[in-house]
Design a protein around this nucleic acid. Structure first.
Lengths: 303, 303
DNA sequence: ATGTATTCATGCAAAAAACGCATTGATTTC
DNA sequence: GAAATCAATGCGTTTTTTGCATGAATACAT
């Protein structure tokens, strides 16, 4: 069982297609086919079902995939750890975050971090809420920004810290009747069309729940698959939206206005998580400490 | 980073000797040397210090060793899991246990298990108390019998069940003044020479502590490095010993006599542990369930 | 101190493994 | 039913690994 075989296996499993996997791996299709075959021989097990011209993982193959994914992540991390050990400030931070932080929160953190450590590298990916947690648990990445902070249920496998609490605000088109107010109550929007994220996004659920607390069900007019899409929809006058305040800092779209909500508890907690079982890589540890330090000072300042 | 390199690396790290590692791996020394060198080149790091004709892990090498050990255990386990998936009853149970269970407890359990699953295989190893826990955590084995059951401190990483509670009894030479009694108090042995396990064995500490509870410090005459050695020492009349009852069942040595102790709480809990983070392999799961079932019935019967 | 025995690293040829190409047979698509 | 796509396989080529021989450095014994 050589890592080359495992790498080929993982790629084929993900693509469910040998030829494409071979292209993606920059080797001939025959090589991939043969290595997979060797692997199956060694394990004495069918990992793929050849149905017609497709290959799909068998149930057993899926189990094997999960295990190998984890093992390879472990090995890759170890490699990075060893390489970064001597000078962490030149290493790489691999971090994932929800789309809502892509525009402002993350960039400003990274900017600050790179001011102190100019040679640090970043690998970023965004993911939906459950995948952030899953990714941290199975080692796809070791750090994730997340909002809201997950609760007890995952406590055994992930550890984290709340960095700050931010307000949720309303974004209205400029010609909206309430656009001139300095603040509103959420319930005042009960008859407005809402633009929200699609099902599956945690922030959509938070919006709907907030409305329910304000004793109405939001009338969903449009769905946009990221925060910027929502902004566009509001900007076009197609509805109103709720957003975390940080996504609007320095970035309120044209023809819209941001209005604070005076409802109680209309906030979300933003934090960072990492796996309990594994240690952070040197550079990531540096970044994590940096995060805590920065936000501790910032929160202190707010008081 | 190929698994061949990692296997060579692990062996060299353990033996601190390339030539011996090569012999143990059934390859030429030059191959091992070359692969280690390749690995170091790829990682761009010194894994070993060449001091004279020895090789020792650098501090960084130690970190890498731990990571790789874990990764390889994961891969090996995955391989076994996949192979055993189809028919668990033909698979292998890898289990570790303290020496005190080597004579009676383990063999009788295994005998019973093999009566139901005649094709099951066993790989057994014994280890000191802390290594039992360490081994389960880092994946050297997935199951360990252990006594006493460890407490909270490791709760996050290991899970386990208490199987039964057994009495601790005294083993006396046949000509001992108390040898004809049907039971004694531990304190009656306060002036006797004791034979005990060496430092580092948990059961030694238990014995000493039990004596302290009986308000005396045992006078240690001899140390034997396993239970059978202790039995021999008692049999030769060199002292008295305390032992878990199960180690004497069907096996009281010649010229000795086993006497129950009437002190309260002179018992130890015997249990089985497995890692919280990983799932048991199919055959091991079978064995674990078997254990629970057997001892539940047995404990029921005792009442 | 000097010689001898070990031990790890390296050059080089042999063996083994992986690769790419071409082709086959099976299946899907139009 | 023809064309296209895909995975498997035979085969010659390339790459990698191995083993042997050797060299350099160190430890040990006398």
């Amino acid at each position: 069982m050589e890592t080359r075989q495992i790498r080929y296996f993982l790629k084929v499993a993900e693509m469910e297609h040998m030829t494409e996997a071979a292209i993606s791996l920059h080797v001939a299709q025959s090589s991939v086919s043969r290595q997979i075959s060797n692997l199956e021989n060694e394990l004495d097990v069918e990992l793929f079902i050849r149905e017609g011209r497709r290959v799909k993982l068998t149930p057993l193959g899926k189990i094997f995939y999960d295990r190998m994914k984890q093992a390879m992540n472990l090995m890759d991390d170890a490699k990075r750890e060893v390489k970064e050990y001597m000078n962490p400030e030149k290493g790489t931070v691999r971090i994932a975050f929800p789309i809502s932080m892509a525009a402002h929160t993350l960039p400003s953190i990274i900017y600050a971090f790179r001011t102190r450590y100019p040679e640090a590298q970043f690998e970023m990916s965004n993911a939906l809420y459950p995948d952030l947690i899953k990714g941290v648990v199975n080692g796809e990445f070791n750090l994730a920004m997340i909002a809201p902070m997950p609760i007890k249920e995952h406590e055994k496998k992930i550890t984290g810290t709340t960095l700050f609490t931010e307000n949720i605000v309303a974004l209205l088109p400029l010609h909206h009747p309430l656009a001139n107010r300095t603040s509103i109550l959420l319930r005042e929007l009960k008859d407005d069309p809402f633009v929200v994220l699609p099902e599956g996004f945690i922030f959509r659920d938070q919006v709907v729940q907030a409305c329910n607390v304000a004793r109405f069900s939001p009338q969903v007019a449009f769905e946009g698959k990221d925060i910027d899409a929502l902004k566009g929809l509001v900007s076009a006058g197609l509805g109103v939206a709720l957003m975390p305040e940080s996504t609007l800092v320095d970035n309120t779209p044209r023809s819209t206005v941001m209005i604070p909500l005076t409802d109680a508890n209309l906030t979300r907690t933003v934090g960072v998580i990492y796996p309990t079982q594994r240690e952070l890589l040197p550079t990531e540890q540096l970044f994590y400490n940096f995060l805590l330090e920065i936000y501790e000072r910032l929160n202190e300042f707010k008081k």
